[in-house]
């Protein structure tokens, strides 16, 4: 899958999994940090995303070091998914 399309898909997945009901994909800055930034998400929300990504793409985020890399931004997450998905 092409990265741009994946970025849009990931934004939709984030909105759905984290129940950001008043947000739309264009509201999410693909270059901004996912957690502790403008989306108002905290690190506990990351767990929801960890299991969501595992279910959707079969990628595993085993620990916080990997989590930090993968959740640095939607762009970083897309790179991580492209590199690791089955």
């Amino acid at each position: 899958m092409e990265k741009d399309a994946l970025v849009e898909e990931l934004k939709a997945l984030i909105i759905k999994n984290l129940k950001l009901e008043d947000m739309t994909p264009p509201d999410i800055d693909a270059a901004a940090p996912l957690f502790g930034g403008g989306l108002g998400l905290d690190s506990i929300d990351a767990l929801e995303l960890v299991v969501g990504l595992e279910k959707t793409y079969g990628i595993r985020i085993p620990d916080e070091d990997v989590g930090k890399e993968a959740f640095a931004s939607v762009n970083a997450l897309a790179d991580y998914v492209l590199k690791n998905k089955n």
Partner: peptide, 8 residues
């Protein structure tokens, strides 16, 4: 500190 699910 770290969340258990991701704790090494």
């Amino acid at each position: 500190d770290g969340l258990l699910m991701l704790m090494p």
